[in-house]
Design a binder for these strands. Structure first.
Lengths: 347, 347
DNA sequence: TATTAGCACTCAAAGAGTGAGAGTGCTAAA
DNA sequence: TTTAGCACTCTCACTCTTTGAGTGCTAATA
């Protein structure tokens, strides 16, 4: 596999990404930066096709990269230009500063990606999993009606209403809050288990049977935090891509997505997976994701889904920058929160 | 306009809804329940076309109802069968019981409608507007970090994090919570105004300047409640309707929708509006909505958007039943909450 | 007078044939 | 090893034709 062939492959990908039309040998030679005749290019392209990097929609059409071709291009051939300061500033602005709650940070990043790339953004909600419970409050709000508030160290707040059989006295509520705090404060969300809650239900019921629905509600809230899911934002952008099957797209964005292996992968750089490889159910698409980290640990993933014919050169630097920036911001936030935990303002 | 013509119109609508193809005179006569020859039907259909109830896609095709035709059909000709007990039970189950929070009730109704009708559901979020503020809490959760919790009488809970310049002492927090409670408890969400908050900011700042961001956050939360919007759920269902323009649909479901005149209309039964009449921007579509009430007052709307060729006979009873049930459930909830407000469990 | 049968007419959709154009693969020469 | 040349293939856009459904009109009928 000589260097010229690689350059031809790169040129085919670039041209195809630019125009969306199958590219022929003549088109490549006209580009000027490969100084051999179209016939030579033709021969090389035939070889590239045999090797599985290119394919022809039909005999007399130009060539289109296969996903193997894209893969080689992305891993070896492409040189992505660095973002300009202007672009970085724009991203910083869209993302929000260090005091942005983490969930919002991710949401903003997704919004930025959909706007810039005109593709769908994918994000995982796995951050809360790596946080600890910093507060559980039970607030009476009506007859036999209580709101449970669960706050974690990463700043996410969940609430849920809970109706009891009887009203609680001040003392009962105090007992309960105290008990819960003792058992849950500082516990990592990841470590929460059903058994743990079962024990708590038992303990609490011994004191007063009608408290157990509260524990159950807290459990349900905590499940929200533990629940891992990949969410797709701006999926409608994919509908204007005519290389994607509309039905597949609609089905895909309507589904709930369990975190796939892709996003669980230990490798931490940019990852590109193709629908064609069987990773997910949109035939002609590719998913470009990268992980962000928090306090030295993987915390979640972020990226886009678009057509396979997507401007990798342009998009990858954006995703890289965003995940780096998010990692940085989250680790900063983290410090604040750790400090805060050592000095609770209210005893 | 004799009775036979009306029956023919009804038959055309029914057939067109069933098959999706323009319906010809022969097809009608074959149905059997209009006992004249196709030639007679042909003549009548020509009259119906002149009157604007039917139209021909092209000369040698059958006829299709115009929106004027649909209107007449819906208002005068259609006889919608009542729901079976089985169907009612299914809806009840999907909706949830009397202790379901109102927002969830609406969400469930929307989900039920999309599932049953395979159309997009539309709902308004206007319920919270008609509720009063029942509780505002400020909860310290970290260094200079506070969570504000806003609870309304209809059971909706909003929270927001707020970072201050300094930490608050116990007394300061008490002062603030007390002050806010005095000023906001029992105030109708509709009556909240920016001026009100401006005054509160002024008063609070006099005590301690750094409290004002808290007031501001509460204001932002209250805006969430007051903000009226029509939301579309399951919009992707419309993409599989080939009579709708995909671009229009995508645009429509991507937009934020201010509450339209349709939903503000004083009339309280089922309402059907057509995109073709200029009410909203999906050409060949119709919106079927009905209002639900709470404690005797209109509280919001609920319905579907689908192709004009939609099974009105089937869908309208569903929407009617849901809005009635929701009105009933909300009024029941309301009683509980009013009772609860007169006897706060925690002093 | 209202209804019906019959027939010519219209039009869209589907199919068949055609030419242009783009691109290829192969061969032979440089 | 590269290139020029050429025959070949296949799609796309276009046109022409056929088919069939459905109409409108007219004249006969109840």
């Amino acid at each position: 596999m000589d260097e010229r062939k690689l350059r031809i492959l790169a040129a085919v990908v670039d041209e195809y990404v630019r125009t969306g039309e199958p590219v022929g040998s003549k088109a490549i030679s006209k580009l000027g930066h490969i100084k051999v005749s179209s016939a030579t290019i033709r021969n090389d392209m035939a070889v590239l096709e045999q090797l599985g990097y290119l394919e022809q929609p039909h005999t007399s059409a130009g060539r289109v990269p296969t996903f193997k071709g894209y893969r080689l291009y992305i891993d070896e051939l492409m040189t992505a230009p660095a973002l300009s300061d202007e672009e970085k500033n724009k991203l910083d602005e869209m993302l929000g500063g260090a005091d942005t709650p983490e969930e919002l940070l991710i949401e903003n990043a997704a919004a930025a990606l959909t706007e810039i790339t005109q593709c769908a953004a994918v994000v995982t909600n796995s951050v809360p999993r790596f946080s600890v419970i910093s507060k559980v409050e039970v607030i009476p709000t009506g007859k036999r009606l209580y709101v449970i508030l669960l706050i974690t160290s990463n700043g996410s707040i969940k609430n849920k209403a809970c109706r009891l059989e009887f009203d609680l006295s001040h003392e009962q509520l105090d007992f309960f809050t105290h008990y819960i705090d003792e058992n849950l404060h500082g516990v990592s969300v990841e470590d929460l288990s059903e058994e743990m809650f079962d024990k708590m239900v038992a303990a609490v019921s011994a004191y007063m049977i009608s408290l157990s629905p509260l524990v159950k509600s807290i459990y349900e809230l905590s499940e929200d935090l533990r629940h891992q899911e990949m969410t797709v934002k701006g999926g409608e952008k994919l509908l204007s891509c005519d290389e994607l099957d509309k039905m597949e797209v609609v089905k895909f964005i309507g589904q709930k997505h369990e975190i796939t292996d892709i996003l669980e992968d230990t490798f931490s750089g940019i990852q590109v997976k193709f629908g064609a490889e069987g990773n997910f159910a949109i035939g002609n698409s590719s998913m470009i994701v990268s992980k962000y980290r928090k306090g030295g640990k993987d915390a979640g993933s972020l990226g886009i889904i678009g057509p396979m014919r997507v401007d990798y050169k342009k998009i990858i630097p954006y995703i890289e920058y965003l995940t780096q920036k998010i990692s940085y911001l989250m680790s900063e936030n983290d410090e604040n929160i750790i400090m805060a935990e050592n000095s609770e303002p209210k005893p």
